[in-house]
Simulated scan of single mutants.
Amino acid sequence: MEITTVGIDLAKSIFQVHAVDAAGHVVVRKALRRAQVVPFFARLPRCLVGMEACGTAHHWARELMSLGHDVRLMPPAYVKPYVKRGKTDAHDAAAICEAVTRPSMRFVPVKSIEQQAALALHRTRNLLVKQRHAAGEHDPRPAC
């Protein structure tokens, strides 16, 4: 019973893991604290790991890729149809595990630290511009 595919539902402090073997039988269903994630995956043989794409998913993807795992990020809207029952972290992890194996699934490229920093800078600038316009301030540059 070697784990071949893992779905992980990310949260603030407790992450839910759902792992299956080559036959699709559930091997692991467990909750991990943030500090337990890297040691857990370090003990696993190389496998396919799926996560929903979000800000922290890129960090965890880089961490798990450094351990040799094949990590794939998916847009949350594409994972939602695979949730079979009520929305819980455990059910989300199972849906992620199933969705990552689908041949028609679209994946999000893992961003580097520099790419994430540049995107954060752009989002911050856009927010400041919106706030300035909402406050009634005008562009200080002369009109041409």
Rank of each mutant, 00 (worst) to 15 (best):
M1F: 14
E2R: 14
T5F: 01
G7S: 00
I8M: 12
D9F: 05
L10D: 06
L10F: 06
A11E: 01
I14Q: 07
I14F: 06
F15C: 10
Q16V: 01
H18I: 01
H18Y: 03
H18R: 00
A19W: 05
A19L: 05
V20I: 05
G24P: 05
H25R: 14
V26M: 14
V26C: 15
V27Y: 04
V27C: 08
L32S: 00
L32P: 01
A35M: 13
A35S: 11
Q36K: 06
V37Q: 14
V38E: 15
V38T: 13
P39G: 02
P39T: 06
P39C: 02
A42G: 05
A42H: 06
L44R: 04
R46M: 08
L48Q: 09
V49H: 14
G50Q: 10
G50C: 07
M51P: 09
E52W: 07
C54A: 09
C54R: 02
G55F: 09
G55T: 00
H58R: 12
H59W: 12
H59Q: 10
W60E: 10
W60A: 11
A61T: 05
E63C: 03
L64K: 10
M65S: 03
S66P: 00
H69P: 10
H69G: 07
D70K: 12
D70Q: 15
V71R: 09
V71N: 10
L73E: 07
M74K: 08
P75M: 08
P76E: 02
A77S: 07
V79W: 05
V79F: 02
K80A: 15
P81K: 08
Y82D: 04
V83G: 11
T88V: 11
T88N: 15
T88C: 14
T88R: 13
T88G: 15
T88H: 14
D89I: 00
D89C: 03
A90K: 10
H91F: 12
D92Q: 05
A93W: 03
A93C: 09
A93T: 07
A93F: 04
A95Q: 14
A95C: 12
I96R: 01
I96T: 09
C97Y: 06
E98H: 09
A99E: 11
V100H: 14
T101N: 11
T101P: 01
P103S: 01
P103I: 07
M105N: 06
M105T: 00
F107P: 03
F107C: 03
V108T: 03
P109Y: 06
P109Q: 02
V110P: 04
V110F: 11
K111Y: 08
S112L: 13
S112E: 05
S112D: 05
I113R: 15
E114Q: 12
Q115F: 10
A117V: 00
H122P: 08
H122E: 13
H122I: 15
H122D: 14
R123G: 02
T124H: 13
N126I: 04
V129Y: 09
K130W: 11
Q131Y: 03
Q131K: 08
H133C: 12
H133Y: 11
A134M: 13
G136Y: 06
H138P: 09
P140C: 10
R141L: 06
A143D: 13
C144N: 06
